Amino acid sequence: MAEDAQTLVDAGCDASDQGRHREAEGLFRRAVDLGEEWVWFNIGNELRAQGRLTDAVKAYQRALAAGETDAWLNLGACLDDLGDLVAAMDAYRGAAAAGDLTGYVQLAHLLREHDEGELAVEALSTAAEEGSDLAAAVLACWEWDRTLDPTLELRLRAGAEHYSSARADLADLLRSTGRPEEARAELERGCAAGQRDCWLPLGNHLADHAGDPVAAEAAYRAGIDAGDSNCHHNLAILLLDLGRTHDAITHLRAGADAGDALAARALRDVLDERDDT
């Protein structure tokens, strides 16, 4: 019985959703063999999930050659991970030119990371003018970080559904203008909506402002489970205050291993202090 390309693609997507990336890759390659060249995009995603970034780049390039413009963003991310910043920027520009305004946003983040702030703002402004709610939200966050201007409240509120940092910054604004309960409610709303970046500030709020270390610990642990490795450091500081040094060291090690410089520094300080006693 002859294979059907769409059936193979559907089966590959199911395997990918279940984390069986090698199996998914094989299914997608069989679809390509049946003439569905656009499926190189899916192959690129599976290669990327396996950490085979160079091969993923080649797959995305083949997808683009077949007219699959959705591959631009993922190509840019792979090139960024590989350290090819110029090519990554070109890929993000390709996404924007193809009509995906997220390309401007990714380009802006990359430009800002490399001290090209004016060009980054220009890219975001272009995307926002063309209707990108995400770009408008990122712009509002950058302005809040720079100015702490409370008149940004409406812009941050508008961006909160589109960008988790906008909700976190909105909570910061609410707290700084004497509305701590509203701030907490915003962060809890973000956590419930799956906005990972809200767990850390919620934990901080519960620890520093609400005086509830039990709830703060639960928030930090939820943030860790959601993939925010920065929560390890803040949880460890809380645990140290509670006298739970062993558990604190475990989390500082985890944070340091994840690349958190604050956790690494705190770990050294804790171990040095322990050796001196």
Score class of each variant (00 low, 15 high):
D81I: 00
L82P: 00
G83I: 10
G83D: 14
L85S: 06
L85H: 07
A87C: 08
A87D: 15
A88Q: 04
A88T: 08
M89Q: 13
D90M: 11
A91T: 02
Y92M: 06
R93I: 05
A95T: 05
A96D: 03
A97T: 15
A97M: 12
A98N: 09
G99K: 13
G99S: 13
L101K: 08
G103Q: 06
G103N: 09
V105Y: 05
Q106N: 14
L107N: 00
A108R: 01
A108I: 00
A108L: 09
H109T: 06
L110F: 07
L111F: 08
R112L: 08
E113H: 08
E113N: 10
H114C: 07
H114Q: 15
H114T: 12
D115W: 10
E116M: 12
E116V: 00
G117E: 13
L119R: 10
L119V: 01
A120H: 02
V121G: 00
V121K: 09
A123K: 01
A123Y: 04
S125G: 14
S125T: 13
S125E: 15
A127C: 11
A127S: 09
A127I: 01
A128L: 07
E129I: 07
E130L: 14
E130M: 12
G131F: 10
G131S: 11
S132D: 13
D133F: 05
L134R: 13
L134A: 04
A135M: 04
A135V: 05
A136N: 00
A137W: 01
A137E: 03
A137S: 12
A137M: 09
L139A: 02
L139Q: 04
A140K: 01
A140D: 05
C141N: 07
E143H: 06
W144C: 02
D145N: 15
T147A: 12
T147L: 13
L148V: 10
T151I: 10
L152A: 05
E153Y: 06
E153C: 11
L154A: 15
R155N: 12
R155F: 02
R155A: 15
R155D: 15
R157I: 09
A158H: 09
G159R: 02
G159I: 01
A160D: 03
E161Q: 13
H162P: 01
Y163F: 14
Y163R: 03
Y163W: 12
S164I: 02
S164N: 10
S165D: 15
A166C: 11
R167A: 11
D169A: 14
L170T: 05
A171F: 05
A171W: 01
A171D: 03
L173N: 04
L173Q: 04
L173F: 08
L174N: 00
L174A: 03
R175W: 10
S176Y: 04
S176M: 12
